[in-house]
Amino acid sequence: MLSVTGLVKRFESSGDTVRVFDGLSFSIAAGRSLALTGPSGSGKSTLLNILCGLESFDEGNVRLLEREVDGLPRDAWADLRRRHIGVVFQDSNLMPTMTLAENVRLRAGLAGRSTEGTGDWLERLGLAGLEQRYPDQVSGGQRQRAALAMVFAMEPELVLADEPTGSLDRQTAHTVADALFRWQREVNATLVLATHDLPLADRCDDGLDLAGGA
């Protein structure tokens, strides 16, 4: 499903070259989950951005969804994200001008999926009755569950989650993580999850510690 070989990523910072990854290699099979751990600045978010085409890399090889992505045009990357890759950030995953239901419909519609059953996803995630609320009218945990509903509604093969529970209290984080892992197993999707939260990382099938570069 996903394999990374000899990945090198460099940044220019104040005239110095910083190597975030210097030959990073790993792979993950379809339907498995991988936890990316490491301190702040170790490159967790950068790696997720590379895996969904929002950032480029300097050297190495990335194979994703049965295709080589090196040199893939931006538009082709956009098509991949639109239909096959779901992305969840720590916060601000929703359009503030649209209700929870409209957000889910927008994401499903962009992926070419049916927008009929969006209410079901919200209901399954415990958000029944909140469909017509705007993101600023619900709690942080409810917003993250709505973000998951958006991803679930687009039915992706790969989910990239960047600190999805980072801004939530322990109980809410637990609820959100439960929903994510339950769905991932149900549909046999592949999950790559960046987190500081070690118990959450332990729930993944595999782990990759990016401390000190790889």
Partner: peptide
């Protein structure tokens, strides 16, 4: 621009 960025994340092409 974050919300335009979200649209890019969700697969909207640059054009």
């Amino acid at each position: 621009r974050w919300y335009v960025h979200l649209l890019a994340v969700w697969g909207l092409r640059r054009r």
